[in-house]
Simulated scan of single mutants.
Amino acid sequence: MYIINRDNKQSKKIEAITFSSLGLKERDDLQEWIVKEPTILGEELLIIQKEFSGFSDTNERLDLLAIDRKGNLVIIENKLDDSGKDVTWQAMKYASYCSTLGKDGIRKIYQDYLNKTEPGIIAEDKICDFLNKSDFDEVQLNHDLSQRIILVAREFRKEVTSTVLWARKFRIQIQCIKVTPYLFEGHLLLDTEQIIPVKDVADITISLDEKAHDEIATGAEIAEREVIRNRFWNELLPKMNAKSQLFSGISTDSTHYDHWLTAGAGMSGLGYSFVITKKYAAVELGINKPNQEENKKIFDLLIEDKENIEQIFGAPLSWQRLDDKKMSRITYILDGVNVFNEDDWPQMQQFLVENMIKLNDALKKNINKLKQSL
């Protein structure tokens, strides 16, 4: 690694060091860095347990257990300067143990972890948010043979890399990530590099794995729910388009499987959404520009006129700044309805059409001002 002086074009090499030379520990340091920022490993992961030892008939414990964006369990084994020769076998054992975990067991494991780290936070809500699902019933976790392994170390022995390459031939999802510490002017730097599979190859492999995963995940229950939502949307849109042009750009010939349907709100990054779940229906304005700070600024400017907006709308709205998330939203909810109960559809569709028009009427003047000023 080099540091570059942009003025004189000179470069200075920063020498790699070892974890042991700094007195760093596997559990107290490297593991905690990953817990606090899982993207160190090159992807978004939800850490659901650390030092997990909840296996029957054994006292063994894995370092970190996570969920990826596909709902797969990810077993993370951390080493420091030397991977050791048995880490592959160790991790494969843990993956085999975890393969038997069901959705409710995973939820309980995560809830136990949250009770210690974030008391009061509900595991189901966090998992749904991470996987972008509206209801825990729609979440699928830990499909058969979908468990993944990530090995982390500064150096990997040939015994390890050889075994990993062999295992991958049998479609075992196992990766090696090299972590190298550097010290520069008192600052500790960490460089991470995925060495197996080579990243360019991994991009191709992952896309194939995702396709296979999607085919497996499309079970009968989810397929049925998608069909129901599709029929709901194709009933709702003509009713909406008969009274407003807000969603006229969305064709009723398209297939809409998700639990939300969004149209532009007249300003880049802002969208009006219908939301349908098995517990409620909602209309909302989503503020979701690429920059989190800009989203919060827009929300704050809108809420300054809260009294006037709600007076035009005709009811109190739910103002959700969502400080820990990139987006913010303003929403109005009808509780106690279920999109999978067709008897609720007339009430839901009337609510959605009437209140989406009212929400647009209440906000469009403010949005136009924001568009001009920002």
Results as ranks from 00 to 15, higher is better:
Lys133Ser: 02
Trp166Leu: 13
Thr117His: 12
Arg321Lys: 15
Trp89Ala: 15
Thr100Phe: 09
Ser373Val: 07
Leu317His: 01
Val160Lys: 09
Ile287Val: 12
Ala223Gly: 04
Val275Gln: 09
Cys98Asn: 07
Leu151Phe: 06
Phe156Ile: 07
Tyr272Ile: 01
Glu221Val: 11
Ile106Tyr: 05
Pro197His: 05
Lys169Pro: 03
Glu44Arg: 14
Ile216Asp: 02
Ile204Asn: 13
Ser373Pro: 00
Leu374Ala: 01
Asn291Trp: 01
Leu302Met: 10
Phe19Tyr: 09
Pro197Glu: 08
Leu114Ser: 09
Gln311Arg: 15
Ala217Thr: 14
Pro197Phe: 00
Leu183Ile: 09
Leu22Ala: 06
Ile106His: 02
Gly84Trp: 07
Ala167Thr: 05
Val227His: 05
Val353Thr: 09
Ala242Ser: 14
Lys325Asn: 11
Phe19Leu: 02
Asn5Trp: 06
Asp343Met: 10
Leu270Trp: 03
Ala242Gln: 14
Asp82Trp: 04
Phe351Lys: 05
Glu215His: 10
Ile309Asn: 10
His259Arg: 09
Thr39Pro: 05
Asp300Val: 03
Lys358Gln: 08
Asp361Thr: 03
Leu317Glu: 02
Asp129Glu: 13
Ser273Met: 02
Glu310Asp: 04
Lys326Gly: 09
Glu37Leu: 08
Arg171Pro: 00
Ser53His: 11
Asn142Ser: 12
Ser318Glu: 11
Gly102Thr: 15
Lys12Leu: 09
Leu101Thr: 03
Val164Pro: 03
Asn5Phe: 07
Ser56His: 12
Phe184Met: 10
Gln111Leu: 07
Asp81Met: 07
Lys296Tyr: 08
Pro346Cys: 06
Thr39Ala: 12
Ala153Trp: 01
Lys369Thr: 11
Gln175Ile: 01
Gln173Gly: 03
Leu237Cys: 01
Glu293Thr: 12
Asp129Pro: 00
Val35Asn: 07
Leu301Asn: 14
His256Glu: 04
Leu270Thr: 07
Phe232Leu: 04
Ile312Trp: 01
Asp137Phe: 02
Met240Val: 03
Cys128Ala: 07
Ser146Arg: 06
Glu37Arg: 13
Ser251Pro: 04
Ser20Gly: 05
Asp324Thr: 13
Gln311Asp: 11
Gly54Lys: 06
Ala66Trp: 00
Ala362Cys: 08
Glu15Tyr: 02
Arg61Tyr: 10
Asn308Gln: 13
